[in-house]
């Protein structure tokens, strides 16, 4: 009933939006910032990417525009949390609510429009799927093997110490937030121009929140993010297969699967991080705290 040769490509495709968004958020959180606006940045990217792809006829331009739009809206969050020292949880939520509204407002005229066809890469899979793998390796290398990556981790682990060493805490964090926004935008655009090929309101359907959970699941490492994205891609693909196969379970209950799986996995990983004696590295030390230099 379920054929692995079709399930694995389906898994990789379903995992890709979450992979991009979660990689971006990983960098943001390693810099000590908790941005709950991933869902909002994704939906803005989904619309901007779709609009640009339709206007230029080039999906590649769509992804560029999506990255720019995601980074642009993330700057509102950066302004609130880095300059106006607003609460990060509330500011991230505001970004999500605002992004969903903004995309719904400007998306009306794109309903029913068809996206231009996407160029297929190796093995019939979209190029962006492959670029996603490169991004995992690149981000791992950046965080663990380069000096700027070390500074970024230092800022996230203890911003007072990083400030004391003369590192520009605020600038590092703003750059990380912009990167996170761009990656979330690309992830969102993958949904609208590579999976659904249409614009519908609220089409990210919680993918941004799942990405946030995957960052926790990954224990704040890039390979962990990849594993998490595959896991959820697998659950999603399997669930869609079961729907198509006409299993005697209502569609609505099957479609709960990715969300329930997120909760279960989040709980298991949190329990491991809580009870394990040799818990890997866990959450960055300054995660979610604002930095205000008095001197």
């Amino acid at each position: 009933m379920i054929d692995l040769t079709t399930l694995i490509p389906a898994l990789l495709i379903a995992a890709t939006p979450i992979l991009y968004a979660a990689l971006g958020e990983l960098v943001v959180e390693r810099a000590g910032v908790l941005n709950l606006g991933v869902e909002g940045m994704m939906i803005v990217g989904a619309l901007a990417g779709f609009a640009a792809a339709v206007a230029t006829g080039s999906p590649a331009m769509g992804f560029v525009a999506a990255a720019a739009a995601g980074a642009a809206v993330s700057m509102v969050f950066a302004l609130l949390t880095q300059f106006l020292l607003a609460n990060q949880v509330a500011s991230g939520l505001a970004l999500t609510l605002f992004g969903l509204g903004l995309a719904a407002l400007f998306g009306k005229s794109y309903e029913g429009v068809k996206a231009p066809a996407m160029m297929a890469g190796p093995m019939g899979l979209n190029w962006m799927v492959w670029i996603g793998f490169v991004a995992v390796a690149a981000i791992w290398f950046f965080l663990n093997r380069t000096r700027p990556g070390l500074i970024l981790r230092g800022v996230g682990e203890n911003h007072d110490a990083a400030h004391g060493l003369g590192h520009p805490v605020r600038r590092v964090r703003i750059a990380a937030i912009a990167f996170g926004g761009a990656m979330a935008g690309i992830g969102g655009a993958f949904i609208s121009i590579a999976i659904v090929l249409q614009w519908t309101e609220g089409m990210t359907a919680g993918a941004g929140w799942i990405a946030l959970a995957i960052v926790v699941f990954s224990n704040w490492t890039a390979p962990g993010v990849l594993a998490g994205a595959w896991l959820f891609g697998g659950v999603t693909a399997l669930q869609l297969r079961l729907q198509a196969a006409g299993v005697a379970v209502p569609v609505q209950l099957l479609s709960m699967a990715p969300y329930l799986a997120t909760i279960i996995v989040l709980t298991l990983i949190s329990a491991r991080q809580k009870f394990s004696r040799r818990a890997g590295l866990g959450a960055p030390g300054s995660l979610g705290q604002n930095f205000h230099a008095l001197r």
Binding site: A213, I263, T267
Partner: peptide
């Protein structure tokens, strides 16, 4: 278990929405 109440409560919104759809249909 120390799971984030932010993410769990939010995930449960999507589960609840699908519950409502299931009940309605």
């Amino acid at each position: 278990f120390g799971a984030s109440e932010i993410l769990v409560s939010l995930m449960l919104v999507y589960v609840a929405e699908r519950c409502a759809a299931w009940m309605a249909f």
